[in-house]
Design a protein around this nucleic acid. Structure first.
Length: 214
DNA sequence: TAGTGGCT
DNA sequence: TAAG
């Protein structure tokens, strides 16, 4: 895979763990199509602020597409095939989403990634996501693929224990983070967003997180 | 298992 | 900023 080494040499791939990396600008060419597809998804399944089991309303607004969607409520976290807010199935995963997720995973060394869930997070200035693990999926063989659009963010990438000090990874429009294997359950989060409006997307950041949930 | 991507 |  000479392309992989070339990409590392050119700084387009940054390792942040044995099986975790940032693909700089990997989604840039598709960014407009991805953003347009988010608008379509949100028309059918509007962004909403979920309430955690502890009773706190999350600052980040969320929606989903694909066969399964991640949800939180007072009863816990889980994946559901039906959007509890609309009573309808989540919108289908747009082909440009699935293709990007598969090629990004392959570029990071995870061949054959076929996500059945895409959680879409909308960050506005001041919003954050505190340190957590993605552990509601059925098995952890598949990686997580995370796509950044819009405003800059600081991604926190920690260890397998919540108490492990996380690395701070700056993320920009078009960057893609992939983690799996021994890094699959690492704690991660996002620092409160600075208001530095993006030329295309304005004062927001959209994050697409692809998972194989079932 | 409980409890939980937030809070103090 | 760390920890529960």
């Amino acid at each position: 895979m000479p392309d992989l080494f070339a990409a590392i040499d050119e700084g387009r791939i940054e390792a942040i763990g044995p099986r975790a990396c940032v693909l700089r600008g990997f989604a840039l060419a598709q960014a407009d199509a991805l953003a347009a597809a988010v608008v379509d998804v949100a028309r059918a399944a509007p962004f909403r602020h979920l309430v955690t089991p502890g009773g706190y309303t999350m600052s980040v607004a969320m929606t989903n597409c694909g066969a399964l969607g991640w949800i939180a409520d007072r009863r816990g976290y889980r994946y559901a095939a039906v959007d509890p807010q609309t009573g309808r199935p989540w919108p289908a995963m747009p082909p440009v989403f699935a293709h990007l997720a598969g090629t990004a995973a392959a570029a990071a060394g995870f061949a054959g990634f076929a996500p059945d869930a895409c959680l879409i997070n909308r960050y506005q200035p001041g919003t954050r996501l505190s340190l957590h693990q993605d552990r509601d999926e059925r098995d952890y063989a598949a990686p997580i693929v995370s796509v950044s659009l819009g405003m800059d963010a600081v991604f926190l990438f920690g260890g397998l224990a919540r108490s492990d000090t996380p690395a701070k990874v700056p993320l920009r429009h078009g960057d893609v983070v992939v983690w799996g294997g021994e890094d699959r359950l690492r704690f991660h989060g996002v620092l409160p967003l600075r208001d530095d409006p993006h030329p295309q997307l304005g004062s927001q950041r959209i994050n697409l997180t692809f998972r194989k949930a079932a």
